[in-house]
Lab assay of single mutants.
Amino acid sequence: EAEIKAARERAIVPLEARMKQFKDMLLERGVSAFSTWEKELHKIVFDPRYLLLNPKERKQVFDQYVKTR
């Protein structure tokens, strides 16, 4: 159900806005820029903003977040 709702939101909200919300979530959840995606996943997986991006986009935004922190 959450994935269906997220898919609707992905269709409406522009990618750039969704990427910003995802980055904000990473900051708010205290995701370490010195860790790996796999180790940090448990901090963010239950946040509704996690589903704003598809899996490939999530990883790309995380990688970008790590490089710029």
Rank of each mutant, 00 (worst) to 15 (best):
D63P: 01
L27H: 08
V31N: 00
L26W: 00
L26M: 10
R10F: 05
E16R: 13
L51T: 10
F46M: 13
R58S: 06
L52C: 06
V61P: 00
F46S: 15
K59P: 02
L52D: 05
E57A: 07
T36P: 13
V13F: 08
E1F: 06
A17H: 06
S32Q: 03
E1L: 04
E40T: 04
E28P: 00
R49M: 01
A11S: 12
K56Q: 09
T68K: 12
D63Q: 11
E9L: 13
V66Y: 04
E28N: 04
M25Y: 02
T36H: 05
S32W: 03
A11V: 11
R69F: 15
P14V: 04
Y65F: 08
H42M: 04
K23W: 05
Y65M: 13
T68N: 14
L41V: 13
K23S: 14
L52T: 05
F22G: 00
L26I: 03
F34M: 15
R49Q: 02
R29Q: 14
D63C: 10
A33D: 09
E16H: 11
L15I: 05
F22A: 00
R58C: 03
S35N: 09
F62S: 01
V31I: 14
S32F: 03
G30Y: 02
L15C: 04
Y65I: 03
K59Q: 11
I12C: 07
N54E: 11
L27M: 13
Q21L: 06
V66Q: 09
S32E: 13
W37Q: 03
I12K: 11
I12W: 07
E28F: 03
M25C: 11
P48L: 04
D63G: 11
K56E: 14
R49W: 00
R49N: 02
D63L: 06
L15P: 07
E38H: 12
Q60P: 06
S32L: 11
R69P: 13
K59Y: 07
W37N: 01
L26G: 00
T68G: 09
T68R: 11
Q21C: 04
K5Y: 05
N54H: 06
P48V: 06
K43D: 02
E1Q: 06
R8F: 05
A33G: 11
D24R: 07
E38Q: 09
L53S: 01
Q60D: 10
R69A: 15
L41F: 13
H42S: 12
A17M: 07
F46D: 15
D24P: 01
R8G: 12
E1T: 12
A2G: 15
L52Y: 04
K43I: 00
M25I: 00
E57Q: 15
R18K: 14
E38W: 04
V61C: 10
A17N: 06
I12D: 08
R49I: 02
K43V: 01
R29A: 10
M25P: 00
Q64P: 01
Y65D: 02
V45G: 06
A33S: 14
K67I: 03
Q64R: 09
A11W: 06
R18S: 03
F62W: 13
P48I: 04
L15H: 07
Y65W: 14
F34S: 15
V45N: 15
S32D: 12
V66E: 05
F62D: 01
K5M: 13
M25D: 00
S32V: 05
F34E: 11
R18Q: 03
V13M: 11
Q64K: 13
V13Y: 12
R69V: 15
D47Y: 00
I12G: 08
W37E: 04
I12Q: 07
K43W: 02
R58V: 02
S35L: 02
P14I: 04
A2S: 13
V45E: 15
P14F: 04
L27C: 09
R58Q: 12
V66A: 09
A11G: 09
L41N: 15
T36G: 05
I12L: 11
K5D: 13
I44M: 07
K39P: 02
V66T: 14
R69C: 15
K23E: 06
F62K: 01
E1Y: 02
A7H: 11
L27Q: 15
W37V: 03
L15V: 11
R29Y: 04
R18H: 04
K5N: 13
T68A: 14
E3H: 12
G30N: 12
F62A: 02
E1R: 10
V45A: 14
Y50L: 04
A17D: 10
N54S: 13
T68E: 15
R18F: 02
W37M: 08
L26T: 00
L53C: 04
Y65G: 01
D47T: 00
E1H: 03
A11P: 13
V61A: 12
L27R: 12
P14M: 05
D47Q: 02
R10M: 15
A33P: 14
L51P: 06
F62H: 03
D47S: 01
E16C: 13
K39I: 11
L26N: 00
E16D: 09
S35P: 02
V31C: 11
D63E: 10
A17W: 07
F22E: 00
Q60I: 09
R29E: 03
A11I: 11
K5H: 04
Q60G: 09
D63Y: 07
V31D: 01
A33L: 10
N54Q: 15
A17R: 11
Q60M: 13
P55M: 09
E57F: 06
K43H: 03
D47G: 00
D63A: 12
L15G: 05
M19P: 01
F46N: 15
R58I: 02
V31T: 02
A17L: 08
L52S: 07
I44C: 12
M19A: 15
K43L: 02
T68I: 07
E9V: 09
H42F: 05
L15K: 14
A11M: 15
Q21Y: 08
E40Y: 01
L41A: 09
D63I: 04
R8D: 15
L51M: 06
R29F: 03
R58P: 01
